[in-house]
């Protein structure tokens, strides 16, 4: 399975909607999801979609370790590597 890139993550984030004041094409990689308008349920939804698109299984504590887009990319890519 190919690595998860930021553009692909943003595509999934867009399916959850975009807050009025937020530009996902700006410098967001280290901005907490919460400040981008995505609450914990939205992050769960994003994780669920990543599970499907990248054939990984997120643990219950993944929420704590995926607070920003960069953390999400690292977390998912580690899972992909571990599974390969």
């Amino acid at each position: 399975m190919a690595d998860l890139g930021l553009e692909e993550l943003k595509k999934i984030m867009r399916t959850c909607g975009v807050a009025e004041s937020v530009d996902l094409d700006g410098d967001i990689i280290d901005t907490p999801f919460e400040l981008l308008g995505y609450d914990s349920l939205a992050v769960l939804e994003i994780q669920g979609q990543l599970e499907q698109s990248h054939a990984v299984l997120m643990s219950d504590d993944a929420l704590e370790q995926t607070k920003t887009p960069r953390q999400m990319l690292d977390f998912v890519n580690n899972l992909i590597m571990a599974g390969a």
Binding site: C16, G17, A19, E20, Y38, L41, A42
Partner: peptide
Amino acid sequence: VPSLLVPQ
């Protein structure tokens, strides 16, 4: 409807 609320 606000964008974030539509899919929810």
